[in-house]
Design a binder for these strands. Structure first.
Lengths: 176, 176
DNA sequence: ACGTCTTGGTTCAACTTTTAAACAAACCTA
DNA sequence: TAGGTTTGTTTAAAAGTTGAACCAAGACGT
């Protein structure tokens, strides 16, 4: 089969995407590193914990929503634990699992850092987008994500009755 | 000033973007690593060289289009040079600069690897987008990139008369 | 010319992150 | 209970990144 090369439009879109994502990630990382002393991934861990049911999440679940390997998450959490921002706890239900719990210190750091982070996200991204484009971006990205998700998690129905999805964080969500 | 938190729509878009970009970069990297033995960044170096005027580019220019530091590029090129895919050359015009040149071996690797890469890009991204969305994506990304560009390169006019921008590569472009 | 400033690029060492394979403990299922 | 699976960690090696220091070569002003 002769390769289906990218059309000129696709070329342009692809290159633009590469550049934008590289620049964006750099900007986010730089800001978070300066003002929070941590890379984006670590911040995401905190953020996700902060609006999880009980400020705690199973390692595997967290890894899954963050789209990273368990190993990578172990590293991140260990690091965060060392700094006292996260604590590990055992799961009563399943003694294999451990839960990552956001500590008060972690919450504090998050609250201190979130405004700057959000500001950066705004300045870099949303302030340059029309409301319409925000919608378009979401649609595009969810499509892509869904597509790439399924490839390894090739299961049909992902029913996990005991995994609650409920409201929880009264204070404003620090994005991710 | 009280933080302008993200609206729910922005939240969703942002989370979707994070997930998608993480998954996408992973997919691309995995494929390139397996079939080409190199990370995406390295491939980008080769690709950019391949459709540059004389299959050669000044380090600084290359770094700039790749949006990475010169230091980082030095590392990448050194690595690629070690594998014989790229060679360094001195610039006649300016004895300070060195040019990265794509070798025949490098071109060969690129040609061997490009189809798989493009296929991955298609499968992960473009096959899930309508023509309209491709346009939207480009527009969004160029906007973002332009915005983030200017911040450090705060110069007004970027006129460099002697930097030609001409056609060159007859074979199909291996995307980036 | 001369001294100074800027640019282009590399080097180096410290560090952080990532990967992959190997494990052990806890579950599950028949 | 045997056999397989899931969860999470450990470990060692490799890779990549950063940032400062540095040198050489242009540019500029006088």
């Amino acid at each position: 089969m002769t390769t289906r090369w990218l059309t000129p439009e696709e070329q342009r879109a692809w290159r633009a995407y590469i550049a934008a994502s590289r620049l964006l990630e750099d900007a986010i990382d730089r800001q978070l590193q300066q003002e929070g002393g941590m890379p984006h991934l670590f911040y995401s861990v905190l953020a996700n914990l902060s609006d999880a049911p009980d400020r705690r999440l199973r390692m595997t679940d967290l890894a899954e929503t963050l789209k990273i390997t368990r190993s990578r998450l172990t590293y991140a959490v260990t690091r965060l634990e060392r700094d006292g921002l996260v604590r590990r706890e055992n799961c009563r239900r399943d003694k294999r699992s451990s839960l990552a719990v956001l500590t008060d210190a972690g919450m504090a750091v998050l609250e201190r850092t979130a405004p700057g982070h959000v500001e950066t996200v705004r300045a870099s991204l949303f302030d340059r987008l029309t409301a319409e484009q925000v919608g378009q971006l979401e649609e595009i990205c969810t499509g892509i994500a869904r597509g790439l998700q399924g490839e390894d998690a090739e299961s049909g129905a992902d029913d996990v009755p005991w995994r609650r999805r409920s409201p929880c964080s009264p204070p404003p969500p620090p994005s991710s």
